[in-house]
């Protein structure tokens, strides 16, 4: 029987690929019995969402160096 280490690996993999039926059942049965792995499953899905949010943050916000560059440009144009 698979233990938590392998089960959590399968959960991770299952977030992107469709797992073989045997593995899907193993994960399901294990989760019914194991609160810690249930927490991991919940949290890894949560992290996926959060990591994607970061992606949006990066696209919609300027990085410090981008801001600096803009300020430099503004200053230069002010002294022209």
């Amino acid at each position: 029987m698979k233990k938590c280490r392998e089960i959590t690996e399968l959960i991770e993999r299952g977030s992107e690929e469709r797992l073989p039926l045997r593995h899907r059942i193993e994960v399901k049965v294990h989760l019914m019995m194991c609160k810690l792995c249930r927490n991991f499953a919940k949290d890894t899905a949560f992290l996926d969402r959060l990591l994607k949010k970061i992606n949006n943050f990066q696209q919609t916000q300027l990085t410090p160096s981008e801001k600096k560059q803009i300020k430099r440009k503004v200053n230069r144009s002010a002294t022209d």
Partner: peptide
């Protein structure tokens, strides 16, 4: 215990919660 969580470092709390 091979392969099972080490309790001190396990997801005893769900961060999603």
């Amino acid at each position: 215990d091979d392969g099972s969580w080490i309790i001190e470092n396990a997801p005893t709390q769900s961060v999603a919660s």
